[in-house]
């Protein structure tokens, strides 16, 4: 343990000397030291700290960075022109990108992945540093002189839709290579707004079946894509031919279309099903009971054909029809089942 020795210097000032006697743990010593310090300072003692406080750091002179070893990114100003640094598509260069980017495998959980310096992982991945907003702005500014102004009458979307239902999308590619041709430029997409064309109930369902996933059923638009022919014009012609064929094919009705079975129906047709017979029979029977006829079960069925005496345009049968076809079309849900229940209750006069 450290011993303390009080030395009297003058009349009022006392000094405590801390002298290390044995190999004492540093921390322990510090504690003892600070305790003595606290005790004594209250009583106007000053402590001579022979072993210096470790936590007070000495001033250290730092070397300024060597300008010759700095990369371009380090020297960049915040308001420099990025388009001049990265004018075109290029693989990643760590020296020119002033961003703290990291990429790669983390060897330990607490370690960070490698920084950008000499990082091959960053070179492998594609970057979009040549497509920043200022780039695009300058590109647009450069092309602007080749463009004509968009007609102001067609700025309204609906007018444009009504007058130009056909939308043709093609793209051109500019590259600094040996060939000015790009194989992707032959692709043609044609968007058609089908609400302009004339369709009846049958042809709508037929074109839906024929077009398949090319058609957006809700918006009634058709999207035809083609890259099968070598030239753009041929592809466009093919798309238009497809459109024509689809339209006229959907207008025709073949004989075998009437032979569709229930599983093929797009919409449930209640009039063609057994359900209608069943309900009409039930309705006929209910009417008989209500009018007070006392007929046997067997005779009532054979005597009169129910479809003659019961009119299927009656209110409760119509409501049943709509509710049941709704149940079949939209599937089960709380709403459809409730509507169905109400219609049955109506049928049973409850």
């Amino acid at each position: 343990m450290a011993s303390r020795r009080l030395v009297q210097l003058s009349n009022e000032h006392w000094i405590v000397l801390n002298i290390k006697r044995s190999t004492v743990h540093h921390l322990q010593r510090c504690c003892v030291h600070s305790r003595i310090k606290e005790d004594l300072e209250d009583e106007n003692f000053k402590v001579l700290n022979i072993l210096r406080d470790k936590d007070v750091k000495r001033f250290k002179w730092e070397k300024p960075p060597d300008v010759r070893t700095l990369s371009r990114a380090d020297c960049m100003k915040t308001d420099m022109n990025w388009t001049s640094v990265w004018p075109t598509k290029a693989p990643f260069r760590w020296g020119s990108v002033p961003l703290p980017i990291r990429q790669g495998y983390r060897k330990k959980e607490y370690k960070l992945s490698a920084g950008k310096y000499g990082n091959a992982e960053l070179v492998k991945i594609p970057n979009f540093l040549h497509l920043t907003p200022p780039h695009i702005k300058t590109h647009c500014q450069a092309i602007k002189k080749f463009c004509t102004e968009f007609p102001s009458e067609l700025k309204n979307r609906e007018i444009r839709k009504a007058n130009f239902p056909l939308e043709v999308i093609t793209s051109d590619y500019v590259t600094c290579g040996t060939s000015i041709r790009d194989p992707r430029s032959r692709e043609v997409t044609v968007n058609v707004d089908l609400s302009v064309l004339k369709f009846d109930e049958h042809s709508v369902t037929k074109i839906k079946k024929l077009a398949g996933d090319k058609m957006d059923e809700k918006a009634m638009t058709l999207q035809l894509k083609s890259d099968r022919c070598p030239v753009r014009k041929q592809n466009f012609d093919f798309n238009v031919y497809t459109l024509t064929a689809l339209y006229y094919e959907s207008q025709e009705k073949e004989d075998w279309e009437d032979e569709m079975e229930e599983s093929d129906w797009v919409k449930y047709q209640w009039d063609k099903t057994q359900s209608k017979k069943k309900i009409l029979k039930l309705k006929h029977r209910i009417q008989q009971i209500n009018s007070g006829e006392k007929t046997d079960l067997a005779s009532s069925v054979s005597k009169s054909d129910p479809s003659v005496s019961v009119v299927d345009t009656e209110d409760d049968i119509q409501s049943y029809k709509s509710a049941f076809s709704n149940l079949k079309d939209e599937g089960d849900s709380r709403e459809t089942l409730n509507a169905y229940k109400q219609s049955v209750l109506k049928l049973l006069k409850l």
């Binding site: 069943k278 309900i279 049941f324 089942l337 169905y340 049928l347």
Partner: peptide, 12 residues
């Protein structure tokens, strides 16, 4: 099943 049972009263 539904075709067989109808008209039925669905009770939730």
């Amino acid at each position: 099943g539904v075709d067989f049972l109808e008209p039925f009263l669905p009770i939730e």
